[in-house]
Nucleic acid binder design. Structure first.
Lengths: 117, 117
DNA sequence: AGCAAACATTCCTATATAGGTATATATTGC
DNA sequence: GCAATATATACCTATATAGGAATGTTTGCT
């Protein structure tokens, strides 16, 4: 089998860089497809297709406003990712702490020796 | 073009459910391929291939221990995802707050009226 | 009704997998 | 060196896209 469908889950949906860009843009508020197209510099059909995927995993919602379609970011879907990845926070935190320790160590050594620059 | 390579970035790497499972297992500490294979119930070659992908995006590291290869989770790579998705936290937070407000509202109404139910 | 604007959808193509199966490589013990 | 264990890699196949181009479809205006 090939990779799982992008519409299967949120992780897959945001795996595509262009879609993350769309999400970034929508973070600023509702946007019409046309606005997204100009902002992204991507052909309109592609943008529409990415929006469709985001819509299917419910990362965005739409409403009509005259001839325009205003897409809106629905952040809750991202919470799932945040929760999963957040569980591992202690791991990189640990690393950062370890780095701090090393830096401190170097600093102390430097003060003590201060031989070569 | 098809989808971007899974080895291109961390987002793509974790888009695959099985790889997230591997990461979950490695959260418990170093594991050999064999241990992962039994835990996942997935054929060994597949597991090795998933590990290769995770290795290329540096989400894991390996060291040899006799005939075994012990894989270790390198959490820092996940920080990237956490940071990106974390920027949208206010959005679902907002929603939760809104929900709270609605619940409060209903509660108040219920107390005030207490007609049906 | 007729036309244009704003999007969505369809069709086609190239490609990157994910899984399955078989095989290669490395390490340990005898 | 040889067999066995533990992993990695190679090869093959089916499939889900992502992008490009063309065409539908809905809405607003006159």
């Amino acid at each position: 089998m090939a990779r799982a469908a992008t519409t299967s889950d949120v992780f897959n949906a945001v795996a595509e860089p262009r879609r993350r860009e769309v999400i970034d843009l929508l973070a600023g508020g509702e946007r019409s497809v046309g606005e997204l197209v100009s902002a992204l510099g991507t052909p309109q059909p592609q943008v529409s297709k990415h929006l469709r995927v985001l819509l299917e995993v419910e990362l965005v919602s739409v409403r009509r406003e005259g001839r325009h379609r205003l897409y809106r970011l629905e952040g809750q879907g991202l919470k799932q990712i945040h929760d999963w990845v957040g569980a591992f926070a202690p791991l990189w935190q640990e690393r950062l702490d370890a780095l701090d320790a090393v830096v401190q160590q170097l600093k102390t050594e430097e003060e003590g020796v201060s031989s070569d620059e």
